[in-house]
Write a protein that binds this DNA or RNA. Structure first.
Length: 319
DNA sequence: CCCGGCGCCTGAGGGC
DNA sequence: TGCCCTCAGGCGCCGG
C-alpha cells in the first residue's frame, strides 16, 4: 500500500519520464475512478510532478492538475512508445514488443485487467493508472482547488525532499517553528499541541491521521513505533517530550531509508517503471507476527488490531 | 472526543 | 480438487 516513500519514489520516476510531455488522449476504463472532464486536460503540457502526503499531482499548463490517490493497490506505470527487438534466454528467441523497452518490465502486460486509465502522450508514450481494488482515484483540479486540498486535508510533511535536491536535505533538521507558507512544521511543539487536541487517541492512530502528519500509513507507523520503542496502544497525552523526539527522529529516518530503497512492495506496489521496491527486506515488525523480536529482547512480535488496522509490535520492548 | 462498523473492491487463503 | 467464506486495508461517513 503506497505510503509516503512509495509515492515519492513514483514521483521521482514520473518526473524524469513525463515532464514536458503533452497529454494527447485519456482513455478511462473505470469511470468511477476518474473525476472531472478529461477534455479539460487533454492537449495540456505537464510542467511538474508533485507529491503531498500520499497523493501525487501532475501540474499542467493553464492552471490545471491531475491529482491521484493510489489507496491500496494503485500503480502509475510509464511506458515509452515504439517497438523493440529483444533477445532473451539463449539468444535464439527474438520477440518484438510494442510500447516500452522490455529490459526490466517486459513481464508486465499493459494495459491489463486492472488498468483504470490510460494517458497517451504526444510522443507515443503512455502512463497507465492501474488499480486492482479500485479504491484509488484521479481528479481534475484547478490550481486553487489543489492548493486547498494540500492546505486543509494534510498536516506537515515529516520530511522535505519533494522539491529539494538531495544535497539540501539538511533542512529537515533545521525545522523549528513555522514555514513560510504557514504550514505547521513536524516538530515536538507541533506534535504536543496536536496531542493536546486528541489526548486519548492511541499513538498509532495519531501518527496515521493525515490531517496531523502527512504520508504515514500502516507499515511505517508500525516500523517507526518499533524503532522508538513505544507501544502503539499508548495514548497521545501520555507520550513524553523525549518520546515525541524519538518518534520524530525515527519517522524521518525510516521514511528516508525507505525512499532510498525504493519503497516497500507488500503486494502490488511498483515504481513508475513497473519495478518492485526493496524496503520489504528491511522491515522489522510489519507482517512479522510470531517471529522473534529483532531488537534482541527475547520477545516475540504480535499482531493486534488498532483502530481496525493490523498492528505489529513487540510487547516486551515497546512500552 | 473516541470507537466500532460499513462501504468501496478483489485476490488470497483457510476450512471443509 | 474446488467451492465458499472471510478478510485485508486507506479513508470517508455514520451512529452510539
Amino acid at each position: 500500500m503506497p505510503e509516503l516513500p512509495e509515492v515519492e519514489t513514483i514521483r521521482r520516476g514520473l518526473e524524469r519520464r513525463i515532464v514536458g510531455k503533452t497529454i494527447a488522449d485519456i482513455e478511462v476504463k473505470f469511470p468511477k475512478i476518474f473525476v472531472g472532464k478529461k477534455s479539460e486536460v487533454e492537449g495540456l503540457k505537464i510542467e511538474k510532478v508533485e507529491r503531498r502526503a500520499k497523493v501525487l499531482a501532475l501540474n499542467l499548463k493553464k492552471g490545471k492538475n491531475l491529482l491521484f490517490h493510489l489507496k491500496m493497490t494503485g500503480q502509475l506505470i510509464y511506458r515509452s512508445g515504439g517497438t523493440w527487438n529483444v533477445e532473451r534466454g539463449t539468444g535464439t528467441e527474438q520477440k518484438q514488443f510494442a510500447g516500452g523497452h522490455p529490459s526490466h518490465d517486459w513481464h508486465l502486460p499493459l494495459p491489463n485487467a486492472t488498468t483504470a486509465i490510460i494517458f497517451s502522450f504526444n510522443d507515443g508514450s503512455k502512463l497507465y493508472f492501474n488499480d486492482l481494488r479500485r479504491f484509488g482515484w484521479c481528479k481534475v483540479l484547478d490550481d486553487k482547488e489543489l492548493q486547498k486540498i494540500f492546505d486543509e486535508e494534510y498536516g506537515p510533511e515529516p520530511i522535505r525532499l519533494a522539491d529539494a535536491r538531495s544535497h539540501s536535505s539538511l533542512s529537515d533538521e533545521a525545522q523549528t517553528s513555522e514555514s513560510k507558507t504557514g504550514q505547521a512544521l513536524f516538530n515536538v511543539d507541533y506534535l504536543m499541541q496536536q496531542a493536546a487536541r486528541f489526548p486519548n487517541r492511541k499513538i498509532k492512530q495519531f501518527l496515521m491521521d493525515q490531517h496531523i502528519i502527512a504520508g504515514v500509513g500502516n507499515i511505517y507507523a508500525d516500523e517507526s513505533l518499533f524503532a522508538a520503542k513505544i507501544s502503539p496502544l499508548r495514548k497521545a497525552k501520555d507520550i513524553s517530550k523525549t518520546e515525541w523526539e524519538k518518534i520524530i527522529v525515527n519517522v524521518r529516518t525510516i521514511l528516508k531509508f525507505a525512499i532510498e530503497h525504493g519503497g516497500t512492495t507488500d503486494s502490488d506496489y511498483v515504481n513508475a517503471d513497473g519495478e518492485k521496491g526493496g524496503m520489504q527486506d528491511y522491515l522489522k515488525v510489519y507482517r512479522k507476527a510470531g517471529e522473534k523480536c529483532p531488537g534482541g529482547c527475547g520477545g516475540k512480535i504480535v499482531r493486534i488490531t488498532v483502530g481496525g488496522r493490523g498492528t505489529h509490535y513487540c510487547p516486551d520492548c515497546q512500552k
